[in-house]
Structure formats: structure tokens, C-alpha cells
Design a protein around this nucleic acid. Structure first.
Length: 880
DNA sequence: CTCTTCACG
DNA sequence: ACGTACGTGAAGAGG
């Protein structure tokens, strides 16, 4: 068997990884994506080839290194970005910790070192693999030297392999002729001039004919394209120089010690520390005997026995604080985790089996939680779906706490929380269960499932102290304790309550839509002259813009835009377009709402949506499965759908929404006297804005002026930009800029306030609401203009949107509390950002109206009064 | 599994 | 010169 050696072009692979992977950072803010990508590909090749020797070559002067892909594209030279540069020394440290040999030499590039070692190794009878992102190295290929070039295509990495034959196949040239090729065509990225006017095609043709640059020169007079001929005659010195530059040195004066390059154990304890530091948890499983991870796992016990389960619950009663996690999916209980102990932690995972039924587990858990012990969990609301628990102060929700500390994450998993707040690297759900759902894992990977349940309970228990400390430090303890924790119980109540839906009426609504949809479909096909899928933007684009040649440019990356605002401009041109718009509206109503909602009607005839408390970046609540916060209202046809949402017998809907809460928040937070005064004086804020901004008497404001003022008001809240406003109002950017300018003149403190928010965000890295809720704004640090502008708008919008969200949360908690305390039958059923819907017992209407009005208006005391609009109705349509 | 579109505040 | 309004979730198409 021939021995194998793997040689790596260090900078080239790092560079490739850096540009190919999304930005990753560890807790200290160190960028890690290039290192991660490098290791990823290294491990992959090690597994494939199992080489005996390994060496990484680096250029000595990292800062002069040029990233070729970028240059080839831009044709310019840019310095290596800091984010990549800082990773190079760390990469070397990691390799060093893994015992990997690295070579560098003054006056020689990594290419030369690789070439030298490769040829020498080949002479010694080894198989050589060179890993590089750089095609220059192809000249080294032979029957025993393989050049491997990683390629990223659509997120997937494939590796192209080049032995001597592969080079011939791809270029019709021998590896050595690759040098000649470069000498002729040059390489801008490598600063090789080549011959003017000679590109890859011409160069290849010449080499196929004459073999070498020198021989071609000898026959210069015969050379085919005239350009090539003159190039050879007039600039031959360039070709000679280029050839020299392109040639990789294969006898650099280095002393290479094969023995030292032998691969022993890469997974050393030192390397483990680095990997932990860099947070490469996917790689940690490669380290076997570090023992650390296992120490925690050693305390895990998996239980299915009834008597033992009873004992564990009894034992838990002796503990002051218990981590608890009820794992459920789609209404099925899959496991219960319990954890306790300060120093010596005991962790149990109980899986339902035999006498330990799901119901029994729920009952025991509920009973246990009612003992008034300190309970820590990752998601208390999920647990509340299965049991009734009184809200009390001795409960800790790690998910909520982690959300407040960083609301930008999409989920708050035990492994993330453990990493950040315990400094522990746990295997994530996917590491243990792969892509299995919990239900599937319960059958196929029982032990791994039990293990993850243990990790959850452990993390909930152990992260409590550090999460609470962090909340305290960031001034969010009150927000957590007095707002988010109580709200969790309010939301759980709403989810359990659900909202009654008249299934029959919903079905009829859908059928009516269907009739019209089919008629429209026929008409559209007729007008188009063919049958096609109207729902496919791609097919529709072809029909409208190619077949019918309607005016309309490209707008999206993938083709023509057929969005409503584009089509609306075309509607007068062709009846077809108007029909398509109507078709779109109807199919949306049919599929998302008529059919969509019907799927969610439970056995009690009600829809129980989930209200998510840890999703939005600003602090709003979101609603899923189904989303009840986007039920149509803006068009009459859509609005009719709200008639199917009804109160139960003997009840009526009471609906209240805040009047322009965000603008009022803005008035308060900015302290602009003129805006505050405007609110004190007038009912119609958009009208008074128009009057003041356009300098017109209040009574003479035209509807158009009012509409424009309204758009400006919205724009201010969204983080104004003249472009955005101009789009919204279909006016020129200049006009939009003038509107904004006069708005700022009218309300002088607003601009200062908004600018202040951006400043604050730049300084601190985040903005805050009145109630100290935070929104980090990392985009402000971006070197990308668009990203940065986005960050500025976010900085302006989030405190306003977030404060409004805080206020209605307070109102919800108080309303819910009073309904219960005053022994009323009425219940909160929906929240739609600035609106609350209460299913109200008819005899309680007066009392509940008073509660709702009072608690909403007094949720916060701003320098502008909070006003609400309140209605009753026999369905949601009427109540709004 | 991503993109496009569209429903809401 | 860049190319957008802020915050969400669901459905359908097409890779």
C-alpha cells in the first residue's frame, strides 16, 4: 500500500470558507466562519482518504494575501477584511493544538512549498493530495498527485478532483502546459500579465499546435489570429515574465520532516478547548475521551417504571428548586424531565410506558407544580396546555428570559441557552435525534430522546441564576417578572379558551368564493388564449409580459414581478389584469382563510391558536396555527369572513382597539410639545397633521392632503425614508423629501428624537422601549449600505412599536386578572397588536366594558391620553 | 426548502 | 451608487 499525504493551501481554503459561509461569531464576538469551513472540509477529506501525513502551508505575509474570487469578479484589489484576518492566527493555533504541521518560508509562497513537498513525496512513492481553492496548482498534477478544488454550489460543497488525466480532459493540456497557458492568457488576480489580446481560447489553440511558449515563438509568423501574432512579436518578454511568475517552484529550500507530519491523534484535549471556545459544537462529538460531556450525562437516569416514578416525585418534593420539562408534540406527551441539586445534580427523564400513562404524568406534574416549589422550565406555556396552574412568583421560564436578553433568535433551545448561560456545550436536538420528530424519536431513538429531555430539565434548572443575573444587570428584571411572566398565563388562558367559529357559515363562504373563482379562471384563460396556472408568478409573467407584451420590467431576481402594486398600474390597460387581481384576492381568501381556518376547528367548535411570546424582535405577540392576527378587514369581501367568528350562547363580543397608539407613543417619547398639543386638541390627528404640515386651515384640509399626512405619520413610525414614502404615495422622491422636511419643521423635537435613537443604537448596540425591552441592532455595524440603512430604520421603529406592544401587554394582564378576580364569565379571546376581543357574558357587558376601557386607557400614563374605540357585536364583523 | 405573494397591525 | 418603508404567518410554486 502506498502511503498518503494530504497537503493544504491554508489561506486559499480559509478564504474560500470565509466567502462561502454566513458570518459566524462566538460569544466573544470573534468571527469563526472561515475556521469552521476549513475544519469542515479538512474532516471530510480526512474521512474520505485517511491519509498518513498532513501538512498545511501558509504564505508568510498574510496581509498581502489577495482574495482571488473577489478580485476576479471586481477586477480591483481590496485589503483582506478584518473579519477574515483575525481568524488566521486562531486557525494556526487550532492546527497547532491538533498537532498539525505547518510550513511557511520567507520569500516563498504557499504554492511553492506545496509543490516542493508534493514532488518530493511523490518521489518517495507516496500518493499526494493537494487541497486548494486555486487552479494555479493544477500544474502539479500527475498520476500520483491529485489536486482537489472545493466548489460551493447552492450551499452544497462538492470537490473537483484533478489527476493528470483530469487536467487533460478539462483543458486539453498537460499539467505542465497549464504554466504555458497562464503565461499566455495571464491571471489578473495573480498579477500575471500574459499577452495582450490572448485569452483562454487562443492560448489553448496555440499550445495544442506548438506545445510550449518557446516553440510558439519560433513559429510566431504562422500564428493564427493576427492579434496573437503581433502579441508574440511585440510583447514576447511579457510571456517570458509571465511564465516565470506562473511557475510553481518545486525545489524550494525547505527542510521537510515527514516523520513530524505523521497524523497521530488530532482530537487532543487542547484542541477540545479551542473547539469549545470557538463554539463548534458539531465537532465536539469527535472528541471521545475528554470525559467532560459525560460527567453531566452520568447523572442522567431514564425511567419508565411506575413505582420508581412515584419515588422520584416524592424525592423531588424535598428539593427547594426543581428543573422540569414536559416534552410534548401535537398533543402527545413524550417525556418528563426532572432535575435538582446544586453541586451534585440529579436528572431524570420519565418516558410514558405501561402504568406510567400520559395522563398520569400530566396529573403528577400538575400536582407537583402546585406545591409552591420553585419551578424552572424552558417553556411553561407549553406545559399549561395540559394543566391548570395558578400563576405564582416561584416560577422561572428560561425561554422567556433568554428571549428578553436577545429577542433576535428564532428559537430558544436548551443547547443555545446552555452554551450562552452555562458555558456548556450540549449536543443539540438534531445531534441526538437527527431530523426525527419527537413522536418518531419516541419509537426509534428512545434513549436519545430521554437524553434530550434530561438536557432540557438540567438546562432549565441550572441556567436560572445566570439568566436572572443577566436580566438584573440589563435592567429587565421587572419587565420579566411583572410583564412577561404574568402574560404567559394570560396567553395560556386565551389559547385554552379559543374562539368559536361557525363552521357551516365558513363552508358556505368558501363555496361562494369557489363559484366565482371558477368563472374568473375561465375568463382569464380565454383572454390569455391558453390555459395556465394563474397562481404561478412565473407562468403569469410570461403571459402578461411576453405573450401580451404589457409594459412592465423585471423586478425580482427570478423574473417578472407580478405583485399587486405592479398589476394595479396595468389594470386599466387590460381587463385580464383586473381579473387576475380579483382572482388572486379570491383564491387567497379561499385557501388561507376559508379552507385554512376550517382545518383548525377543534372538537369544541373553537379555534385554539397559539400565541407566541418569544418570536418578534420588537416585543409584539405573534399568532400561529392558525394566525388569527391577520384575518381580513381591509376589503369588504374579506371582512365578511369575520362574521363566522361568533360568541357562544348568551355571550356577545366586546372589541376595543387603541387609537393610533404608536403615534401617541411617539408624541410621548419624543416630548414634542406641538404633537402632544395636537393630540390634546383634535380628534383627527391625520387631519391636524395635514393642516400644520401644509399650512392650511384645519377645516380646509382636502381628503388627499389628509391621506398624504397619514402616510407621513406612518412613515415616521416606520423609520422614515423619502424613497419609502414616495413609493407609498406614488409621488417623486423629491416631493416625499419635502413632506418629511416640513413634517420635521412642524414637530421640531421628532427629528432630534429619531436621530437620537440611531445614535443610541450605534453607541450601545441596542435601543429600548419605555419599559426597558431591548432590540439589538447589529445591522448598524454592517459595511453594507443597505443593511446599515435598515438598521437605522429599525432603531427608529423598534422603541415605538415595542412600547406600544408593552402597553397592550400590560392591559391584557390587568384585564384578564380582573375578569377572574371579579368572578366574571367573560374571557379575553384575541389580541391583534392594538386590539383586544372579549367574549362577554351578556349580563356582564357593562361591567366588562368598564374594565376594558379602564385597563386599556390606564395601562400607561403618557403625556398624551390613550384613547380607545370600543364596540359590541354578535360577531367579529359587527364588533370591530 | 426558498421565493413570491398577500393577509393583518 | 447602493435599493427600502416597520413587525409578522401561510399558501402555492418549483427547484
Amino acid at each position: 500500500m502506498r502511503e498518503k499525504i494530504l497537503l493544504i493551501d491554508g489561506h486559499s481554503i480559509l478564504n474560500r470558507a470565509f466567502y462561502g459561509l454566513p458570518d459566524l461569531t462566538n460569544a466573544e464576538g470573534l468571527h469563526t466562519n472561515a475556521i469552521y469551513g476549513f475544519l469542515n472540509i479538512l474532516f471530510k477529506i480526512l474521512e474520505e482518504e485517511k491519509p498518513d501525513y498532513l501538512t498545511v502551508a501558509f504564505d508568510l505575509h498574510a496581509p498581502t494575501f489577495r482574495h482571488k474570487q473577489y478580485e476576479a469578479y471586481k477586477g480591483t484589489r481590496k485589503p483582506m477584511p478584518m473579519e477574515l484576518r483575525e481568524q488566521i492566527p486562531v486557525m494556526k493555533d487550532v492546527l497547532s493544538a491538533m498537532g498539525v504541521t505547518m510550513i511557511t518560508k520567507e520569500g516563498y509562497e504557499a504554492d511553492d512549498l506545496l509543490g516542493t513537498v508534493a514532488k518530493k513525496s511523490e518521489e518517495k512513492g507516496m500518493d499526494v493530495t493537494i487541497l486548494s481553492g486555486d487552479r494555479d496548482l493544477l500544474q502539479l498534477a500527475s498520476s500520483h498527485i491529485c489536486i482537489r478544488i472545493p466548489k460551493t454550489k447552492g450551499g452544497k460543497t462538492t470537490i473537483e478532483d484533478y489527476y493528470e488525466n483530469d487536467v487533460k480532459e478539462a483543458y486539453q493540456l498537460t499539467p505542465l502546459q497549464i504554466i504555458e497557458l497562464k503565461a499566455l492568457m495571464g491571471d489578473t488576480a495573480d498579477n500575471i500579465p500574459g499577452l495582450p489580446g490572448v485569452g483562454e481560447k487562443t492560448a489553448t489553440k496555440i499550445l495544442l499546435e506548438y506545445g510550449t511558449v518557446e516553440n510558439a515563438k519560433a513559429h510566431a509568423e504562422e500564428l493564427k489570429p493576427n492579434k496573437a501574432k503581433t502579441a508574440f512579436l511585440e510583447h514576447y518578454d511579457l510571456a517570458v515574465l509571465s511564465k516565470e511568475l506562473a511557475t510553481i517552484c518545486i525545489d524550494s529550500p525547505i527542510e521537510y520532516d515527514w516523520e513530524g507530519a505523521k497524523i497521530h491523534n488530532l482530537y487532543t484535549p487542547e484542541a477540545y478547548e479551542f473547539f469549545k471556545e470557538l463554539e463548534f459544537k458539531n465537532f465536539l462529538s469527535r472528541f471521545e475521551d475528554t470525559g467532560e460531556e459525560n460527567k453531566i450525562e452520568e447523572s442522567f437516569r431514564y425511567i419508565t417504571d411506575f413505582t420508581e416514578t412515584e419515588k422520584i416525585f416524592e424525592r423531588a418534593l424535598e428539593e427547594p428548586v426543581v428543573g422540569i420539562e414536559l416534552l410534548e408534540e401535537k398533543g402527545q406527551i413524550l417525556g418528563l424531565g426532572l432535575a435538582w441539586g446544586e453541586e451534585e445534580t440529579e436528572v431524570y427523564s420519565i418516558l410514558p410506558q405501561g402504568f406510567v400513562t400520559e395522563d398520569y404524568l400530566i396529573e403528577k406534574t400538575q400536582e407537583f407544580c402546585q406545591q409552591g416549589k420553585l419551578i424552572a422550565s424552558l417553556n411553561i406555556k407549553a406545559m399549561l396546555r395540559y394543566m391548570d396552574l395558578k400563576s405564582h412568583n416561584d416560577m422561572f421560564d428560561a425561554g422567556l428570559a433568554a428571549y428578553l436578553l436577545n429577542p433576535l433568535k428564532s428559537e430558544y433551545t436548551y443547547d443555545d441557552i446552555a452554551k450562552e448561560f452555562l458555558g456548556e456545550m450540549f449536543p443539540a436536538k438534531e445531534d441526538l435525534l437527527g431530523k426525527l420528530s419527537y413522536i418518531k424519536a419516541a419509537n426509534e431513538k428512545e434513549e436519545e430522546l430521554a437524553k434530550s429531555v434530561c438536557y432540557m430539565a438540567y438546562t432549565a434548572l441550572k441556567s436560572r441564576t445566570s439568566l436572572l443575573e443577566a436580566l438584573e444587570k440589563e435592567n429587565m428584571k421587572e419587565l420579566y417578572t411583572d410583564m412577561e411572566m404574568p402574560l404567559l398565563f394570560t396567553l395560556a388562558d386565551m389559547e385554552k379558551e379559543g374562539i368559536l367559529v361557525e363552521a357551516e357559515a365558513l363552508k358556505e363562504y368558501g363555496e361562494k368564493l369557489q363559484v366565482r373563482i371558477e368563472a374568473l379562471e375561465k375568463e382569464i384563460w380565454e383572454q390569455a388564449g391558453e390555459e395556465f396556472n394563474i397562481n404561478s408568478p412565473k407562468q403569469l409573467g410570461v403571459i402578461l409580459f411576453e405573450k401580451l407584451e404589457l409594459p412592465g420590467g423585471k423586478k425580482t431576481k427570478t423574473g417578472y414581478s407580478t405583485a399587486a402594486d405592479v398589476l394595479e398600474k396595468l389594470a386599466p390597460e387590460h381587463k385580464l389584469v383586473a381579473d387576475i387581481l380579483e382572482y388572486r384576492q379570491l383564491t387567497k381568501l379561499k385557501s388561507t382563510y376559508a379552507d385554512g381556518l376550517a382545518n383548525y376547528i377543534a372538537e369544541d367548535g373553537r379555534i385554539h391558536s397559539t400565541f407566541n411570546q418569544t418570536i418578534t424582535a420588537t416585543g409584539r405577540i405573534s399568532s400561529t396555527e392558525p394566525n388569527l392576527q391577520n384575518i381580513p378587514v381591509r376589503t369588504e369581501l374579506g371582512r365578511l369572513l369575520r362574521k363566522v367568528f361568533i360568541p357562544k350562547d348568551g355571550f356577545i363580543f366586546l372589541d376595543a382597539d387603541y387609537s393610533q397608539i404608536e403615534l401617541r407613543v411617539l408624541a410621548h417619547m419624543s416630548g414634542d410639545e406641538k404633537l402632544i398639543q395636537a393630540y390634546q386638541e383634535a380628534q383627527d390627528i391625520h387631519r391636524i397633521t395635514a393642516s400644520q404640515v401644509f399650512h392650511i386651515p384645519f377645516d380646509e384640509v382636502t381628503p388627499l392632503q389628509r391621506r398624504n399626512a397619514k402616510a407621513v405619520n406612518f412613515g415616521i413610525v416606520y423609520g422614515i425614508s423619502s424613497f419609502g414614502l414616495s413609493q407609498d404615495l406614488s409621488i417623486s422622491r423629491k416631493e416625499a423629501a419635502q413632506y418629511i422636511e416640513s413634517y420635521f419643521q412642524t414637530y421640531p423635537k421628532i427629528k432630534g428624537f429619531l436621530d437620537g435613537l440611531v445614535e443610541e443604537a450605534k453607541e450601545k448596540g441596542y435601543v429600548s422601549t419605555l419599559f426597558h425591552r431591548r432590540r439589538p441592532v447589529p445591522e448598524l455595524k454592517s459595511s453594507n449600505f443597505m443593511q446599515r440603512s435598515f438598521g437605522e430604520r429599525v432603531a427608529m421603529n423598534s422603541p415605538i412599536q415595542g412600547t406600544a406592544a408593552d402597553i397592550i401587554k400590560i392591559a391584557m394582564i390587568r384585564v384578564n386578572k380582573r375578569l377572574k378576580e371579579e368572578n366574571l364569565k367573560s374571557r379575553l379571546v384575541l389580541q391583534v397588536h392594538d386590539e383586544l376581543l372579549i367574549e362577554t357574558a351578556k349580563e356582564e357587558v357593562e361591567q366588562v366594558s368598564a374594565i376594558l376601557e379602564q385597563e386599556m386607557k390606564e395601562a400607561a400614563h403618557l403625556s398624551v391620553a390613550l384613547e380607545i374605540d370600543m364596540h359590541t357585536g354578535e360577531n367579529w364583523y359587527e364588533a370591530k
